[in-house]
Amino acid sequence: MVTAMTDAYKRRLTAGDISVGDTGPEVVVKDLEREDFVRYAGASGDFNPIHYDEPYARDAGNESVFAQGMLTAGFASHAISDWFGLDRIERFTIRFQERVFPGNTITVTGEITDVADGDAEVIVTADLEAKTDGGDVVLSGETVARLPSE
């Protein structure tokens, strides 16, 4: 199974490493398959058949089965936990915009929009986006993280 590699988690950022406009590690998940939706169903407990049962999904008016929104949110979580560190993330907000279908390649990107000084730390806000290879935004979101000053 292919995992989406970024090595950013190996680096612990501090305030001096970041500024507004910086972009984070890209998480690229290539060529999603129905198997990926089934695996997420088993791992997460989301067994809504709309994500793996083709006749059911079509009868409900969809062109095919589509991914659980929380699977795409998981790809976005990967980007921000590698970027800022799991223990430094204070908030993670996700809006589901479009469905993700088998065959889609998903790229998650992030950009720092604000850096505010706190007590011996900075509070970093970043916008997040997940797009298909066709350029459709499937998820947008935001995260807030606290990074030490030094």
Binding site: A4, D36, R39, A43, S44, G74, F75, H78, S81, D82
Partner: peptide, 16 residues
Amino acid sequence: GKVEEFARAIKDDNPV
């Protein structure tokens, strides 16, 4: 085991 399974499902390779 459940944490590893979940990380695999979201395709996150981090050994943490």
